[in-house]
Amino acid sequence: MAGGINLQTNWSTKASNSISGKQFLQLFPAMAAISFFLIGPLTFILIYSFLTPGTYGGVEWQFSTESYLQFLFERDLITDELIFENAYLLVFLRSLVLALIATISCLLIGFPTAFFIATRSEHNRNMWVLLITVPYWVNLLIRTVSMLFILRDEGPINAALIGTGIISEPIHMAYTNFAIGMGLIYSYLPFMVLPVYASLERFDFRLMKAAYDLYAGRWSILLRVILPVVKPGLIAGSLLVFIPCLGAFIAPDILGGGKKLMIGNLIAMQFQASRNWPFGSAAAMILLTIVLIALTVAARQPRPGKEVA
């Protein structure tokens, strides 16, 4: 009987115990490594974002909020006045819009796919899930390059369209916002399908019968029964797509040809060509803040009760 054990686990979840010496020793290496080599860098980003850029890269140890102001304003060289300037704001807006479009597209593609998989037989489901998972493990750079390959002016899509005489001039798809969006969807689609599938898999499909019995049609069952129950999966999936899209670097870099910047590129540029570390750090801090807000909002979502057995 599990009576005694149950009591114990119930108790344990309240966790008033402090960590044991052995546990601490076992956790120490991983915690120390991450604290030093990840929390450390994040702290440096925070500090650097309030410093003054050095002449040849690096930083001057002089406090300044200039890096943050730089997002919205340009300082007139002569009068030292702040003049509103929207170039960087546009980069942020483009990132937000592209990330949103990618997330919504992934939802629209991902939910039906996840639903389709969840209604397969148990044996087949695993195969479908594997099919969806495998692309994620293929190098993101390679996948993006292959997307560029097919979208290019000389790529197979244009070649086929021209070859069949539908168009005479290639459609410029590469190096556009469209290409970036395609790249983002392509990169993070599995992130949407998998969590949505996970919650659909636990969905009790007898609820559909029950709703059907109570005179609900197919689409109102979808809207009023299924979607509310799998909402946590939809939120998790959206978050898993939105966050990496927002900080994406590879897709805009390869598919945008470096012309259509997103936040990720803007940050990277400051540490490479432009050598303005404080500005790059400030951009990173703003991105991190947006991500934290998104995570907090999602975490605040009320946890659904246990599924109806």
Binding site: M31, G40, I45, F271, A284, L287, L295
Partner: peptide, 19 residues
């Protein structure tokens, strides 16, 4: 432990560089 997954990679990247 899962922080490396949560932080956008580009931030870990530039952070590690300056660190």
């Amino acid at each position: 432990i899962n922080l490396p997954l949560l932080v956008p990679e580009i931030i870990s990247a530039v952070g590690s560089l300056i660190f």
